[in-house]
Amino acid sequence: MCTNGVNTGQFEQMIEQIDDHIKIERRWSHTLAHMAADGGFALTGEKLHEVQHKLDEVRALLGDAKDALEDDAEAASNVTVNLV
Rank of each mutant, 00 (worst) to 15 (best):
K23H: 08
M35E: 15
K66W: 03
D56C: 09
L43F: 09
E74P: 07
N82V: 10
V51Q: 06
A33V: 04
R59F: 05
D71H: 09
V81L: 06
V84H: 11
E25H: 11
A36P: 07
A60F: 07
I15R: 00
A76I: 06
T8C: 02
D38R: 15
R59T: 08
D38M: 12
I24K: 13
L61M: 13
A73D: 00
G45V: 03
G63P: 01
T3L: 12
E57N: 14
N4Y: 08
V79T: 10
A37Y: 11
R26W: 10
L48R: 03
D19H: 13
G63I: 07
S29P: 08
V84Q: 10
G5V: 01
L61G: 05
T3E: 05
L32I: 14
F11A: 05
M1P: 08
Q13S: 11
K54D: 10
D20F: 08
A75C: 01
N78F: 06
A73S: 01
Q13T: 02
H53D: 13
A60D: 09
L83A: 07
F41G: 11
D64M: 07
E46C: 05
D20P: 01
C2L: 15
I22S: 03
E50G: 14
V79R: 00
G5Q: 10
N7C: 15
T80A: 05
L48S: 01
F11G: 07
A60H: 12
A65N: 05
E12S: 10
N4D: 09
L32A: 13
H30A: 12
D19E: 11
M35F: 12
A36H: 06
V6K: 06
E16I: 07
K23V: 06
G45M: 03
T8Q: 03
E25P: 02
L69K: 05
A75Y: 02
G40D: 11
T80Q: 08
D56I: 03
G40N: 06
Q13I: 00
K47N: 09
V81G: 06
F11R: 00
E16F: 10
V84N: 13
N7R: 15
A75L: 03
Q17S: 02
L55R: 02
